[in-house]
Simulated assay, not measured.
Amino acid sequence: MKSDRKNRIKSIDMLRGVVMVIMALDHVRDYFHADAYLFDPADISQTNVPLFWTRFVTHFCAPVFVFLAGTSAFFVGQRLDKKSLSVWLLKRGLWLVIAELTVIKLAWMFKLDYSTILLQVIWVLGISMIFLAGFIHLPKKLMIGLALVVIFGHNLLDPIAPTDSVASGFWTFLHVFNIVDMGSFQVFVGYPIIPWIFVMPLGYYFGELYKPTYDSKLRIKRLFQLGLGLTVLFFVIRTLNIYGDPYAWAQQNSLGMTIASYFNVTKYPPSLLYLLITLGPSLIFLAMVENVQNRWAEKLVIIGRVPMFFYIVHIYVIHALAVVAAIATGFSFSDMVIDLWVTLQPQLRGYGFGLWVVYLIWILLTSALFPLCKWYNTYKTANRQKWWLSYL
């Protein structure tokens, strides 16, 4: 059972490692792809098939981060009482929010003025943990039912658009991808909290499948059933084309682009269909890799064990490399000092490279970061008594 338990944890770390690596592809694209400064890769009227799928595959990252963060909290809870777990979640959540506003903001923008505040995935991870600190005290069935109601029903809220500035700002934090003007500064709400805060509790109770007493064969069966069920449900709802996403799919001028339109689901905030087509296949992946052991799997496991470390370091490295690339192609360092988001910098129009360069840089980047992740994982394992390591 001990080795089986080890395998279970490895499969989760492997999935986390996969999405970390995929996430790096999206961020390299943001900082190096020429078309990123001209149009959204998910804009069906302007994108192309390779670019669309380069963007689509990275949709798996945020849902897996939030869902598995809940699962990790469940594992922590196996050695703590609920009160202690709540305290741990509160401290961890607050740290993530602070990190988003400081070290991560600096990485994205290369400046630390607060005329603009970015609230992105690390922010919503932190806020979700803070809510989870309270949610774990609700009866299990009530919490799961509430989470499912919000996840399946929140797209009914899409038409709501308050006209009052205060109400509009509050609603943006809850359910709208937008900028909130706060007078002396603005807040870019990339990740409003609904439905993210309800995804994490599902990940928390999902952890029960990984209790040492749970039969591994039954767990694999359940993972396949859950994953396939969510994926099939995506196809059923998407084909009906009447609910589940703010934007319907439509026939395009080619089969490839029609398929792209079909899979073009909304991330900000995540629609029901977005969550179904990302979490469903992710659960199937967990079932498939339960007992996989090879050198590539081990590399992904190592990255998956140090996700926050990888996240922070890879942003700094990508941004620093982009500065070098910009200067080498006739731009200046100041052009890469970001006001809101790199692809929205008007002075960077004309900068960038082809998609093949993006993939090349991504491969080189992840290859170069792996030894650093391996070193940190070893250091972290050998120094578990250092409390601060649990925050990185």
Rank of each mutant, 00 (worst) to 15 (best):
F206N: 00
S254P: 14
I130R: 02
L276N: 03
L228V: 12
T329P: 06
V166M: 08
V49F: 14
A250H: 10
T172A: 13
L300M: 13
T343N: 13
F177I: 08
V289F: 03
A287V: 04
R219V: 05
A382Y: 08
T266P: 09
R8S: 04
L226T: 08
P371A: 11
L321W: 05
S254L: 13
D13R: 05
I193D: 03
K211H: 14
F309G: 03
P212E: 13
F173W: 12
G207L: 01
V232I: 15
T54D: 12
F188Y: 14
L118R: 01
V301W: 00
G77V: 08
L218K: 13
A73T: 06
G350Y: 11
E290Y: 08
L90W: 06
L118F: 08
S165Y: 10
L372W: 07
L364G: 14
I363N: 03
D181K: 07
L230V: 09
V21C: 06
V187W: 03
N291P: 07
R305L: 14
F39Y: 15
T239G: 13
A42Y: 07
P162N: 08
A34E: 13
L101Q: 09
A368F: 11
C61M: 07
F152D: 02
W95M: 11
R305P: 07
L255T: 14
R8Q: 11
A326F: 10
L80M: 15
F52T: 02
V317M: 05
R8E: 03
A133S: 15
Y359K: 04
S86C: 13
D158M: 06
K374C: 10
V199W: 00
S86N: 12
S261T: 08
P63Y: 01
I302P: 03
A260Q: 10
I22H: 07
H314F: 07
F56V: 10
A297G: 11
T278V: 12
L68Y: 02
N48D: 12
A260Y: 08
W95S: 09
V189Y: 02
F188V: 12
N383S: 13
V121P: 00
L369P: 01
A107H: 07
L321P: 01
N155L: 11
G304C: 12
S282E: 00
D4H: 06
W388Q: 08
I144M: 06
L392P: 01
I136E: 02
F198V: 01
W108C: 05
L106K: 04
M308P: 01
A322N: 02
K140L: 00
L68E: 01
H33W: 14
T381L: 14
L174K: 05
V317E: 04
I220W: 03
K380F: 08
W341H: 09
S261C: 06
L148S: 07
M200V: 09
M288H: 06
L283N: 01
S332T: 15
D30M: 15
K2W: 05
I127L: 09
Y268E: 14
L101P: 02
G229N: 14
A36D: 12
V180R: 04
S165G: 06
M143H: 06
L344M: 12
K105E: 05
V232L: 15
I312Y: 09
K380M: 13
L283C: 04
T329I: 08
Y37H: 11
I237Y: 06
H175A: 07
K83A: 09
W108N: 03
L360P: 02
G183Q: 10
F331Y: 14
L355H: 06
E298A: 15
F173M: 11
S84W: 13
